[in-house]
């Protein structure tokens, strides 16, 4: 399973490096969303600093949908979809590999967005480790849930419109807990932030487990 996961993650990341969809479409979209939110909030630095965690995670959430769609678009054709089913790869390994590739892209995006909120909104984080752990746990949850629902909608003609409808409500707890954990990290309120990590961690573990267990049947249904 781990060997297959590495193989699939390497393939997906190589394709992404070649096509540069994440670089030229997902990243500009996320940065643009951040800038537009800043315009909408007006010039008040206090309002911008208060809204920054929520805006950061909203931008990440929307980017998760794009990155997931892209991850399945490379296997949208009948040939590659059948090829993957006949490849001999363990479905759990395929799930972990796809989720790992989405994780890497989202983590890179979060670094850029972190710099963005620091520069645009004047945010200064006091408990950096808390923000980093929140990012790691949330990104595992986002990428795992994204790939699970991506597989669910992969074979459908309406997949591009269906995926956001399926996945955005499911990811709402990550938006809430991630934003609150980041607010706590900005304020240096560690104990409050750790409480929100206790929502992010089970979410990540649950969707990892669901993906490992159900990716095979989901792939068949797609």
């Amino acid at each position: 399973m781990w060997r297959d996961a590495l193989l699939v993650a390497g393939k997906d990341l190589r394709i992404e490096l070649r096509s540069r969809v994440a670089l030229w479409q997902v990243l500009p979209f996320a940065v643009l969303a951040l800038v537009l939110f800043a315009f909408a909030l007006g010039p008040s630095p206090v309002a911008m600093r208060r809204a920054a965690p929520g805006l950061f995670w909203l931008a990440v959430l929307f980017s998760t949908v794009l990155a997931t769609q892209r991850s399945f678009a490379v296997e949208a054709g009948e040939g590659t979809r059948d090829g993957l089913r006949l490849s001999g790869l363990d479905p759990a390994g395929i799930f972990l590999g796809k989720a790992a590739a989405v994780f890497v892209q989202l983590a890179a995006l979060e670094l850029v967005l972190w710099a963005g909120v620091t520069l645009l909104f004047g945010v200064r984080i006091h408990a950096t480790w808390l923000a980093v752990i929140a990012c790691l746990l949330a990104t595992v949850g986002l990428s795992s849930a994204g790939v699970v629902y991506g597989a669910l909608s992969a074979g459908l003609r309406v997949r591009e419109t269906l995926l956001p409808l399926l996945v955005l409500p499911i990811l709402a707890p990550v938006l809430l807990a991630g934003s609150r954990a980041w607010s706590a990290a900005i304020d240096g309120a560690v104990s409050s932030g750790v409480g929100w990590l206790r929502i992010l961690a089970p979410f990540a573990v649950a969707y990892l487990a669901v993906g490992v267990a159900l990716y095979g049947p989901l792939q068949e249904a797609g």
Binding site: R14, V74, E78, G79, T80, D82, G83, L86
Partner: peptide, 18 residues
């Protein structure tokens, strides 16, 4: 069975970017 089968269908099982 799938592990031991090679299928060449109408659409080739290839990745355009590789």
């Amino acid at each position: 069975v799938r592990r031991h089968v090679g299928l060449l269908g109408h659409a080739a099982p290839l990745y355009d970017e590789l």
